[in-house]
Amino acid sequence: PKDEAKKKVKEAIKRGDEETAKRIAKKYNLDWDDAKREADEER
């Protein structure tokens, strides 16, 4: 599900692992900028 994928993307971003985050986002066709902004807001 997309929500689960987005959570994984945000967790990867918070760990500083943007490569993984981008790969997950691409795989699930998520909006990378959107997920990154959300992760930054939660930090």
Results as ranks from 00 to 15, higher is better:
P1Q: 14
K2S: 11
E4L: 14
E4G: 07
E4P: 04
A5R: 03
A5D: 02
A5M: 11
K6L: 15
K6A: 08
K7C: 14
K7T: 10
K7A: 12
K8I: 11
K8R: 14
K8M: 15
V9A: 04
V9W: 06
V9Q: 00
K10R: 12
K10P: 01
K10T: 07
E11D: 13
E11L: 09
E11S: 06
E11F: 03
E11T: 04
E11R: 07
A12V: 02
A12L: 15
I13W: 07
I13F: 07
I13K: 01
K14M: 15
R15C: 12
R15T: 04
R15A: 11
D17T: 01
D17F: 05
D17H: 05
D17P: 01
D17L: 05
E18T: 11
E19N: 06
E19V: 11
E19S: 08
E19W: 11
A21I: 00
A21N: 00
A21D: 00
A21V: 00
K22S: 03
K22L: 10
K22W: 08
K22A: 04
K22Q: 07
R23S: 09
R23V: 09
I24M: 09
I24T: 02
I24V: 04
A25N: 00
A25M: 02
A25L: 02
A25G: 00
A25R: 02
K26G: 04
K26I: 10
K27H: 08
Y28V: 03
Y28L: 02
N29V: 02
N29I: 02
L30C: 13
L30V: 14
L30F: 03
L30Y: 03
D31T: 04
D31F: 03
W32V: 03
W32G: 01
W32H: 01
W32I: 07
W32R: 00
W32K: 00
D33T: 08
D33S: 07
D33G: 06
D34V: 12
D34I: 11
D34Q: 13
A35S: 06
K36P: 03
K36C: 09
K36S: 06
K36F: 09
K36Y: 09
R37Q: 08
R37P: 03
R37V: 06
E38Q: 07
E38C: 09
A39S: 08
A39G: 04
D40V: 09
E41D: 10
E41N: 12
E41V: 08
E41Q: 12
E42R: 04
E42W: 07
R43K: 12
R43P: 10
R43S: 13
R43W: 13
